[in-house]
């Protein structure tokens, strides 16, 4: 049995099926792909399940050759991402990814349309208006009066700039399909607390928008460390 190619084919399908099931049921799928794509993954898993069941049904009757070295290697390669993801357990995209991709404060034209701005929450925390990084940048471009000098609070990941103890960049990753296309959006935060912050921690910045510089900024009044949000990305 262990010599037959179809045994390894069945095993490969089963392991991928199990992987997809675990990653979906644990809620970790949204760490890798946009929520809108999850139905496709469910459909894919369903097709894979049928492939697996039909394969099981036909297993004994099937004519199969013996496995050779190259086929064994290709099955191993097929399973490599499953092993890698299971062992490494990636958490979230970090400062390292932001640095490699280059942080931008510019949104794509379609990201700043009126609908997007309308989504900006009117929820507040005390006197501070709750926004996310994308909404802040969209408002800075389209409706600067709504943020210039106004009290705001925004969550994000700390990205430390080299040699600057008085400022850091508050980063969120914007994704369209999956983490491979994630674009790091950033807002510069000026704060006397910047030097004390560790890179890659999640913080909530309370402060006021400042559009006087060449890039929109937040002048922080307070910064609190917060847990990683349930939704790591902006869409």
């Amino acid at each position: 049995m262990f010599k037959k190619k179809n045994f390894y084919q069945t095993l490969t399908i089963f392991i991928w099926l199990l992987f997809l099931f675990v990653i979906q049921s644990s809620g970790k799928l949204k760490l890798f792909i946009k929520k809108d794509y999850i139905p496709f993954t469910i459909l894919g898993s369903f097709i894979l399940l049928i492939l697996f069941l039909i394969r099981l049904k036909r297993y004994r009757k099937e004519v199969s050759g013996d496995i050779d070295f190259m086929s064994a290697l290709s099955f191993l390669a097929f399973l490599f991402p499953v092993l890698l993801t299971t062992i490494v357990r990636p958490g979230n995209l970090s400062s390292f990814a932001a640095m490699k991709r280059g942080i931008t404060g510019e949104l794509a034209a379609g990201e700043t349309d009126v609908l997007e701005i309308m989504k900006a929450q009117l929820e507040t925390e005390g006197e501070y208006r709750k926004l996310n990084v994308k909404q802040f940048l969209a408002l800075a471009k389209k409706r600067p009066d709504e943020i210039a000098g106004k009290p705001l609070c925004i969550e994000g990941l700390v990205f430390k700039q080299n040699g600057r103890a008085d400022r850091f960049i508050l980063v969120r990753f914007l994704i369209t399909c999956c983490a491979a296309d994630a674009t790091p959006l950033g807002i510069e935060v000026e704060s006397s607390l910047a030097g004390q912050l560790q890179k890659d921690i999640w913080v909530k910045v309370y402060g006021r928008g400042n559009l006087g510089q060449d890039k929109p900024q937040i002048i922080a009044e307070d910064i609190k460390e917060v847990p990683k949000p349930a939704d790591l990305y902006l869409y």
């Binding site: 991928w16 997809l20 990653i23 799928l29 760490l31 890798f32 792909i33 794509y37 496709f40 993954t41 459909l43 894919g44 898993s45 097709i47 894979l48 991402p81 890698l84 993801t85 062992i87 490494v88 357990r89 990636p90 958490g91 979230n92 995209l93 970090s94 400062s95 390292f96 990814a97 490699k100 399909c177 999956c178 983490a179 491979a180």
Partner: peptide, 29 residues
């Protein structure tokens, strides 16, 4: 295992596959 390069590499491999695999399966069907 927490090395940033390894984390980002794993994240991107998994993201590309999890996004593309359903389309490969739909295409195959």
């Amino acid at each position: 295992l927490q090395n940033p390069q390894l984390q980002v590499f794993t994240m991107i491999v998994a993201a590309i596959l999890l996004e593309a695999l359903p389309f490969i399966l739909i295409g195959a069907l």
